[in-house]
Write a protein that binds this DNA or RNA. Structure first.
Lengths: 341, 341
DNA sequence: TAGCTTTATGTAACCGGTTACATTTATGGC
DNA sequence: GCCATAAATGTAACCGGTTACATAAAGCTA
């Protein structure tokens, strides 16, 4: 095998180029380029001839050469904290689909909720030439802001709504949503609510939700328990909250991931849901509608957010006008895990 | 704002180039390139001067120009069927981390289990210049094979082990693992087992698992129920399997996602787990260790598979020798959802 | 100091497409 | 057939880095 003798990347140079196609079809490189990019100014006869050469040679245009010349990659980068538990799956699916319709590709990078990793991953994306960056949450390391300024690339924030933020936000008002959740429980006559939430560190969505709860507290006693954003964290949160059937009548988890763990732990302790304690989650993940009982949850507009973010970014890149903030609405899905007392 | 008057992408041309850096630091473009790529043949004095100009100008190298010249992107593409339920999250995290250590970037694309989407996404990845492609499962549309040959890019298959496959497989033997699961239940004296599995269509991992079960059947009666690969699908599978406490003593779900739904449905029907029916899953997803009872599950070597695939691909690209097939072992994690009868 | 060797740096071509401007060909009208 | 115009196509420069080979500078030894 001669190929195995070459070592390294020599075989990479064997691929045909636009010049090969031009030579074989007897036209200039400009005509080949026109056939590839613009069918208006080439005759059908010539187009057929060029297309046959492309097919015959297995010609594949170089994206690097193309973007070097056009100054565009038509690629957008998205940074998300995690791929776990489908939290971002619906949003990413919608984002990618809509961007694709608008002629853009999407590259996703995972930050594990770390500011340092986020800067590093953003740098990678920008190195690759992404034309825009879409992030989750409002607060980001100063390093990220500096990077975006340096690369002069637009950024859109999702999962958050704040018309006054430094970058346009396309998402939802976390504080208001948390308030409506508390109102929902209050209307069911709950006056002692344990709130299970993930790590506060660098997570402005959780912070805003807690602010909203504290603001709407009124005559409701709230107990806050910070725990891991995982199923396990939910179970541990129940242990920490010391649910004893006597005072706390409801548990509000700021994520359905934790709500699943909380449900399991309550069942383990023979604490009946919703007889003894009502349980509510956030994000309406799939299991919340299948669980026993179904978990009352806040359905966040993930797919719509992805779609709108895609459109906003494409528009920004085309018109050079920044995106407008957009407040998407969430809604409460009632299920068997909550009851009136 | 003059910038807002430019429209389109004019501001893209204002960024500094390697030539600007060379001019400002009074050296040639070759020296600037050497400072960027190789610190051995440049004096410290020159290096400092060039670095200052880079910082001053906010110079950012063009990845397109660099890859056009070097013939490399140092980027690998991975195709996965879904981002849902963390099924692939551990594998992708490990893959990306190890590739990064080896000097490669990773781009992930989701295929939604569709052959057509897979070909389209692969085309996008190859257009972007990825140097290798890593896929899940052995069977793929012929269009994908053609694409890879056309681009002359190496491919590695994961989540499957078959030393005779057309491309190297780095994963696990699905048939053997399913056999061991059945053996485990059989050793607990289960002789009637309902098997819940996702859609067979184009999913060779499930197919292999079923083959393994049929081969290992012996004196065990198996009932196969095809259902959606989702929590909901698991619940519906229980309804379809008509678990009645009389004959079927165990339910084997070929995914923990379905096992979660099955657990909920069994509880809804007041069928006690494991008293009335034992329940077993596949993949040892997080909730299986937290649920009530914990779900006995097969722990697949996702992280190790990601790590080994990364190393195999990097090695292949460096040495031009194809990767060797690798059979990673799974292990059964016993929990409260199964019992001896 | 001169000559030789090693180190540091520069020049110009190149990578593979795109496209402004130039040139050729085709078409329609008189 | 000739002329004007439109359509089709070609030429050469360019994008922004990389690097082979050439040249200059530095270091060492006799």
């Amino acid at each position: 095998m001669v190929r195995l003798m070459c070592g390294g990347r020599d075989w990479m140079k064997k691929k045909s180029t636009l010049r090969d196609v031009a030579r074989q079809s007897g036209v200039s490189v400009a005509t080949v380029s026109r056939v590839l990019n613009d069918s208006q100014s080439v005759t059908e006869k010539t187009r057929v001839r060029v297309s046959a050469a492309i097919e015959d040679l297995g010609f594949v245009p170089s994206a690097a050469a193309r973007s070097l010349n056009s100054g565009r990659t038509r690629t957008i980068g998205a940074l998300v904290p995690t791929l776990d538990h489908s939290i971002f799956a619906r949003y990413l699916n919608a984002l990618e689909d809509r961007l694709s319709e608008l002629g853009y590709g999407l590259i996703v990078s995972v930050t594990n909720g770390s500011g340092d990793i986020e800067v590093k991953k953003a740098h990678n994306l920008l190195d690759m030439g992404v034309e825009g960056v879409i992030v989750s949450g409002r607060s980001h390391a100063e390093g990220l802001n500096r990077l975006l300024r340096r690369f002069d690339v637009p950024m859109i924030i999702t999962s958050y709504f704040d018309p006054l933020a430094d970058y346009p936000t396309i998402g939802y008002n976390n504080a208001a949503i948390a308030e409506s959740a508390l109102r929902y429980l209050r209307d069911l006559n709950h006056r002692h609510v344990a709130v299970l939430h993930g790590p506060l560190e660098g997570n402005d969505r959780i912070e805003a939700r807690l602010d909203g709860l504290k603001r709407a507290q009124g005559d409701v006693t709230l107990e806050f328990v910070e725990t891991e954003l995982s199923v396990k964290g939910g179970a541990e949160g129940i242990l920490q909250a010391k649910i004893d059937r006597q005072s706390t009548t409801a548990v509000l988890c700021l994520s359905d991931v934790q709500a699943l763990g909380a449900l399991f732990e309550l069942q383990r302790q023979k604490i009946s849901v919703p007889q003894d304690v009502s349980l509510m989650g956030f994000d309406n993940l799939e299991w919340s509608s299948i669980s026993n009982p179904g978990i009352t949850s806040i359905a966040l507009p993930a797919a719509k957010m992805g779609l709108k973010a895609a459109e906003a970014m494409a528009s920004w890149l085309t018109t050079n006008f920044p995106a407008e903030p957009l407040d998407l609405k969430a809604e409460i899905v009632s299920r068997g895990s909550t009851r009136k007392i």
